[in-house]
């Protein structure tokens, strides 16, 4: 019967596999082009479509306590009165699949998949 060690060789394999997986998923996500619009969503319901084309700072009419900022084709929560401020600390988002969430308000700012995603990724012959 062996006693449990604190660290051993197999740990390095685990760490390498996890970091490699993270790198692959990151590369796959980063290869998608930046989007031109964002959605404000509450409880899976799209409240508002926001164009990322022109810089602006505004508060959605349903959420006057939240301020959003669009700048250089990216968008972020500029301020919010929620306690944890996770949405604000997320910072700018611009790629499809990225999001900033305010869980206390069940509010989410997300970048939808680009319209061109209807086209096939590849055609195998």
């Amino acid at each position: 019967m062996h006693t449990r060690r604190f660290i051993q060789g197999s740990d390095l394999i685990l760490i390498a596999v996890l970091l490699l997986l993270a790198g692959l998923i990151f590369l796959a996500a980063a290869r998608r082009p930046a989007s031109t619009s964002a959605q404000l969503v509450q409880d899976s319901r799209v409240i508002m479509e926001i164009s990322l084309g022109e810089d602006q700072t505004f508060s959605p009419s349903d959420f006057p306590e939240v301020t959003l900022e669009v700048k250089d084709g990216r968008i972020r929560f500029l301020s919010s009165d929620c306690p944890d401020q996770t949405c604000v600390r997320t910072g700018f988002i611009s790629h499809p699949g990225e999001y900033a969430v305010c869980l206390p308000k069940r509010l989410m700012l997300r970048i939808p998949d680009s319209p061109s995603s209807d086209e096939p990724d590849a055609i195998l012959k």
Partner: peptide, 28 residues
């Protein structure tokens, strides 16, 4: 989170994997 707001968070998985390795090592 996925069940709460039904949106896939694949883009966030790398962050969680790397932070899991880092924080898991620290707590270990």
């Amino acid at each position: 989170v996925y069940f709460l707001i039904s949106h896939s968070f694949l883009a966030y998985v790398p962050v969680l994997l790397v932070s899991g390795v880092l924080m898991g090592s620290i707590t270990g």
